[in-house]
């Protein structure tokens, strides 16, 4: 489990996070949602230690992440996988080399064991014969899959995804969401996903954290979204008139039934 306690972050004068206290659970797809610029990426980067909070603490289990030295932090990071918004695949390496990179760097596996691990990760993300292709030669959806494969190759306990379905068509986006959810359940890992995608919220939102104006505005799961009377949440989720009409219709029907 990951806990954040009163996390603040300012850049120069701009206060992006104004005290966020929340929890993320193992075996669940935890979502951080909010408008563009709400500070989702900043919060995610604080969780993994790429950005240091101005004040506040992050706990991984009982370990206070913010008080670790560089070496201890690296040890925790061995248990962390992350999918970046732009996939962040190394363009000088092939797909296979990208996924193998953490194995090459941190394990003393034989060449054969590594090849098997790479194959099983590629299979896990439903990618076939793309081993020798370079990141620029595959589609955006495939890049995300490779990014996920690389993130899980060391069997992490924590998986972070920054907008995993941005830039993808709705269908591919859902497939990627389901893939992340299945991996989360299979391996019982703590997954934290940044998103502003409504489909993701309604499909895989086990624990949803809404960030608005630097603060935690709402927390709950997907089944509580429709009934919630929280204004900020309703404005965020049902942003378009079309969705507002859908919601009204759905509520009406549930009252009748």
């Amino acid at each position: 489990m990951i806990r954040t306690i009163d996390v603040h972050k300012s850049f120069n004068e701009q206060e992006v996070l104004k005290g966020v206290t929340t929890e993320f659970f193992p075996g669940k797809t935890n979502l951080i949602i909010g408008r563009s610029g709400a500070g989702k990426t900043v919060l995610l980067k604080i969780l993994v230690g790429l950005v240091t909070p101005t004040t506040g603490d992050i706990f991984y289990g009982d370990v206070n992440f913010s008080q670790l030295n560089k070496k201890e932090m690296r040890a925790i990071r061995m248990k962390v996988g992350m999918l970046f918004q732009g996939s962040a695949l190394f363009d000088s390496m092939s797909v296979e080399e990208n996924i193998r990179f953490p194995l090459d760097m941190f394990t003393s596996m034989t060449w054969k064991e590594k090849a098997m691990q790479v194959d099983s990760c590629l299979e896990r993300v439903s990618l076939g014969q793309v081993h020798k292709k370079y990141p620029s030669e595959i589609s955006g959806g495939m890049q995300k899959r490779v990014g996920i494969a690389r993130a899980i190759v060391l069997n992490p306990e924590y998986l972070f995804c920054d907008e995993p379905n941005s830039g993808l068509d709705p269908k591919t986006a859902i497939v990627i969401d389901e893939l992340i959810r299945d991996i989360t359940i299979d391996k019982n890992i703590t997954t934290v996903i940044n998103t502003h995608d409504m489909n993701s919220v309604m499909e895989i939102g086990d624990n949803i954290v809404l960030i608005h104006e630097g603060k935690l505005a709402w927390r709950g799961d997907k089944s509580q979204v429709l009934e919630s009377t929280n204004d900020t949440l309703q404005q965020f989720i049902f942003a378009s008139p079309f969705l507002q009409r859908l919601r009204a219709a759905a509520l009406e029907r549930s009252q009748e039934g």
Binding site: M82, A88, F90
Partner: peptide
């Protein structure tokens, strides 16, 4: 890419 490497450790 650098962030991705840092996360790996």
């Amino acid at each position: 890419h650098i962030d991705a490497m840092e996360i790996m450790g």
